[in-house]
Amino acid sequence: MQQTSSKYRFLLINAFSLPPTSPYLHRSVDGPKEKLLVNHDLIAHHLEGVDWELHPGALTPYGDWPVESREEFCLVAAARLPIVREACESGKYNGIVLLGGGEPGVLESREIARPFNIPVTSCGYAQMHFATLLGNKFSVIDLAEVHNMYYYNLVVQHRFDQRCASIRNLNFPLPRPGHELKYAVREQKEKALRGEPSEMVEAAVEHAVAAIEEDGAEVITFGCSAAFWMQPFLKQRLLALGWDVPVLEGYSCAIELAKSMVNLNISASALCYPDAITQRPRKRVRF
């Protein structure tokens, strides 16, 4: 990226990348950044006026399938941190957007970026904050139980457990060795884009309505980024049923939050993310 007069100079970093030979590839590995950014057509207007680059993410160190379990998230989080540090030290960027619904390495990335006064945003965190600006409680539409429980921890970590009505499981797990429906999510997206009935979209509609009627949700969000593509479909279907509720998608929320933080010239607090050697340490940290 060349230095320009743009107000926003962002690096978008994927949570991970798979080897080109992986049978579980879920996004393009060749071509311009617009092709490599999943759901670019959905979020392109949020990137207007932004000078941005896309990092594909570090190769998964555990295997050649998408991340879903706690162990896998821990490993890809560690692999993403050197990318964040290099980006901060380069001086090229004034905002970093961590892609991926599970936002691996988000707290550590903020700690790295804070001395550079570079805001770091992420999908789950951004969705939850915007959701609580729009309604009393939100529900999360997610793909698989193992990811549901990982995301449950994120809700608690970000202190939104009193504002989250529920996490709803579509039971469309991501592909991995031994999984019989290993291409289900990709095929469901392709069906919907062709205008054909998609079982995944139908399940999302069913769960979103239940979240509203039974759980008390007033805003709908998504967990895994592999579900973000459903945002316009779900929004339209809920409106047709008479439910005029916000349906949020993580990439756009994270990008817009990063732009807001640049506008305000703020990043993370040095009290929340102190240096290893602090000039004025506190005597205690209260809850």
Score class of each variant (00 low, 15 high):
3 Q>I: 12
5 S>H: 14
5 S>P: 04
9 R>P: 01
19 P>W: 12
22 S>G: 09
22 S>R: 10
27 R>F: 00
30 D>P: 00
32 P>A: 00
34 E>K: 12
35 K>H: 05
38 V>A: 14
42 L>K: 15
44 A>C: 12
44 A>G: 03
45 H>S: 15
49 G>Q: 10
53 E>C: 09
56 P>D: 09
58 A>V: 06
58 A>P: 09
59 L>T: 12
60 T>A: 13
63 G>L: 10
68 E>K: 06
75 L>G: 05
78 A>K: 15
81 L>K: 08
81 L>R: 10
87 A>K: 09
88 C>T: 03
90 S>C: 04
96 I>H: 02
104 P>I: 03
110 R>A: 10
110 R>V: 00
116 F>D: 06
117 N>V: 02
118 I>C: 01
118 I>G: 05
125 Y>S: 13
128 M>H: 02
130 F>E: 11
134 L>W: 03
142 D>F: 09
146 V>D: 15
148 N>D: 13
152 Y>N: 12
152 Y>L: 14
152 Y>A: 14
153 N>T: 15
153 N>C: 13
156 V>N: 10
157 Q>C: 07
160 F>R: 08
161 D>Y: 13
161 D>T: 04
165 A>L: 09
171 N>R: 13
171 N>V: 11
175 P>E: 07
175 P>K: 11
182 K>P: 05
183 Y>M: 15
185 V>W: 03
187 E>A: 12
187 E>I: 08
192 A>D: 06
200 M>A: 11
209 V>S: 02
212 I>M: 08
213 E>C: 08
219 V>E: 03
222 F>N: 02
222 F>C: 01
223 G>E: 07
231 Q>M: 11
235 K>H: 10
236 Q>A: 15
237 R>K: 13
237 R>M: 04
238 L>M: 08
239 L>C: 12
241 L>C: 06
243 W>E: 04
245 V>P: 01
247 V>T: 01
252 S>Y: 04
252 S>R: 10
256 E>Y: 07
261 M>E: 09
266 I>T: 05
267 S>Y: 01
268 A>K: 06
273 Y>N: 02
274 P>G: 01
279 Q>P: 02
279 Q>L: 13
286 R>G: 00
